[in-house]
């Protein structure tokens, strides 16, 4: 029986990430790291114990006292120093005590979770009250050109399409998920990064080297015919190429930031507790409910 919850194959995700450690296409990963560091720098708080998932490199920050690195595999953790604080785990079954971490930072791993809402709930539970969660993940616009080209080619050559590019979550959905997971004061934003490539094949090479080759459970495991790739590359070029003949590839990075709820955070007032009448502020007469406004 097919289990719908298994979109991603964890072993394939792990293998892909290990491959990225040897690759030379970590530019998006590095960009996310820099961006997260900048965002941490402007937060007026310090964090005693912070967990960093997927950093790949040693992550140090002036706002963090003690850093614990976690990942799916020993090979993707940063090189061991004298005092290792490393943990191998899957964030979908996060082995952390409730209210134990001051911050959790995730670098580009949330887009390969089978149960993203559950993962976010577990992260929230592991955080102390007023603990911070910062996550980065690929969003829905990512590789839309490649997805379209491959689907087009497969429809043409095989009369049917198979899943090849991940089903990414949208920014709007991510906002709803953060609220559902119980995060207070969530902030969601995203950035589009367009990378220029000579052709579709160099783009696909980079995607593999990033550690982002398909880890879909239902991915095509058999050899994909040359005709499909040739048709897709041609379609990609004809549809999206710039005037200089190079093709653009879009990556959308979603940033999420949320806090574990705490009474010190800003709270909405109780309905009816306003001290100033809106009508007074607007310098107008109030029309009570039930009475219709005149046209």
């Amino acid at each position: 029986m097919k289990n719908d919850m298994h979109i991603f194959d964890l072993n394939a995700v792990r293998r892909n990430r290990e491959r990225a450690m040897r690759g030379d296409a970590n530019f998006l990963h590095d960009w996310c790291l820099d961006n997260v560091k900048e965002r941490l720098a402007v937060i007026k708080r310090e964090f005693d114990t912070a967990l960093i998932s997927g950093a790949r490199d040693s992550f140090n920050h002036e706002k963090i006292g003690h850093t614990i690195h976690l990942d799916l595999s020993q090979k993707t953790l940063p090189a061991q120093n004298a005092h290792p604080a490393h943990l191998i785990c899957d964030e979908e079954t996060l082995p952390l005590r409730m209210n134990s971490a001051d911050a959790l930072i995730d670098i580009l791993s949330l887009h390969t979770k089978n149960d993203l809402p559950g993962t976010l709930i577990q992260i929230n539970r592991a955080l102390k009250p007023d603990g911070l969660f910062v996550g980065t993940l690929f969003g829905g616009e990512t590789l839309f050109e490649l997805r379209k080209s491959l689907t087009h080619a497969e429809m043409q050559c095989r009369n049917g399409a198979r899943p090849r590019v991940y089903p990414f979550v949208d920014k709007q959905q991510m906002g709803a998920l953060m609220q559902r997971a119980g995060f207070a004061l969530p902030v969601i934003d995203s950035e589009l990064i367009t990378v220029s490539y000579s052709d579709m094949f160099s783009l696909m090479r980079d995607v593999r080297h990033m550690g982002e080759a398909s880890a879909l459970h239902d991915r095509t495991k058999s050899f994909t015919g040359r005709d499909i790739f040739m048709t897709a590359a041609e379609y990609y070029h004809n549809t999206f190429a710039e005037t200089d003949g190079r093709i653009p590839a879009t990556f959308e990075i979603i940033f999420v930031l949320g806090w574990s709820p705490h009474e010190s955070q800003q709270q909405p007032l109780k309905p009816g507790s306003a001290e100033v009448r809106l009508a007074d502020l607007l310098n107008t007469t109030e029309i009570t409910t039930g009475e219709k406004a005149k046209p």
Binding site: T49, H66, I68, Q80, H83, P84, A85, H86, L87, C89, D90, T93, L94, P95, L96, R97, M98, S100, A101, A126
Partner: peptide
């Protein structure tokens, strides 16, 4: 052999049963 980071040891629980 390294010892496990004491802070990490303090916050770890069983991933299945918590």
């Amino acid at each position: 052999t390294h010892d496990v980071d004491p802070k990490l040891l303090e916050i770890l629980v069983c991933p299945l049963t918590h």
